[in-house]
């Protein structure tokens, strides 16, 4: 895939410091995603991957640094305004609205778009995840883990975002389901959506991605083409369990 050379930057983070109250989690984090790419952040539990995402989305505010989406500074915007600029988000642990049915969850995903766009988009998303259409009137809390993950992704796709952010979509899923989800992500990307992926399943993730960052203790320690990282001895040993 030669998507990474000429395209424009869709999202950039420059020297971000961020955390929770007095606790600093991210130190001098910089990241770049070009239009059309799939970029992955890998790293062990608790190093700050989700914190990076939450900072991008404005759920927590960075104490210094710049975040630009489509060349526009979004640091100080409220979350709902950042989302409306064209970001779809599938949270860690899926966080579907358990009290709403599948259709209603998708309706919320399309909160920022018109009713007409919603109706059109609903069919497209149902085509991508036929299982959701079958279960459209079922309460989200009654779905299996894999179905909930599909719903979380579908919900994030409802506004036809320019950037789709996924926080550990394979967490807790059987390998075969995880693979199915990754196949969908490849399709989604081929249809033109840029993807930022957080993943602990490093093997799957590096195969899917164009570019990857390795995070340790709130810093990026490696930043490379995914195909190159997949051959990196340190990455193989530390994150893929290959000696």
């Amino acid at each position: 895939m030669a998507k990474d050379s000429n395209n424009k930057n869709l999202l950039t983070l420059e020297n971000i410091e961020s955390g929770y109250g007095k606790v600093k989690v991210l130190h001098n984090v910089s990241l770049k995603i070009k239009e059309g790419q799939i970029v992955t952040i890998v790293g062990a539990n608790g190093v700050g991957k989700s914190t990076t995402i939450k900072t991008i989305l404005g759920l927590i505010k960075p104490s210094s640094g710049q975040i630009k989406f489509k060349n526009e500074l979004i640091n100080s915007l409220e979350t709902y305004k950042i989302i409306a600029k064209g970001i779809g988000y599938s949270p860690e642990g899926r966080e579907v609205f358990g009290n709403l049915n599948v259709y209603e969850n998708l309706r919320i995903g399309a909160y920022t778009v018109s009713k007409d766009d919603f109706t059109k988009r609903l069919e497209e998303v149902y085509q991508l995840f036929p299982r959701l259409k079958e279960r459209k009137n079922q309460e989200a809390s009654s779905l299996s883990g894999g179905e909930q993950q599909m719903l979380a992704i579908a919900r994030a796709l409802m506004q036809d975002p320019d950037l789709l952010i996924l926080d550990e979509p394979s967490l807790g899923l059987a390998p075969i389901i995880a693979e199915e989800i990754f196949n969908r992500l490849a399709e989604i990307n081929q249809m033109g959506t840029t993807i930022l992926l957080i993943e602990q399943n490093v093997n799957l993730a590096l195969h899917l991605s164009d570019h990857a960052y390795v995070m340790e203790k709130g810093k990026f320690v490696l930043d490379e083409k995914a195909s190159i990282l997949a051959q990196n001895d340190y990455v193989k040993k530390t994150y893929m369990g290959i000696a």
């Binding site: 989302i83 709403l100 506004q159």
Partner: peptide, 24 residues
């Protein structure tokens, strides 16, 4: 209605609702 669904969504999880573009 969309507003009604959003109200139920915010009730369930305000932060996630915000992250779906809802001004809670």
């Amino acid at each position: 209605t969309k507003l009604g669904i959003a109200m139920r969504g915010v009730s369930y999880n305000k932060q996630t609702a915000e992250a779906m573009g809802i001004n809670s």
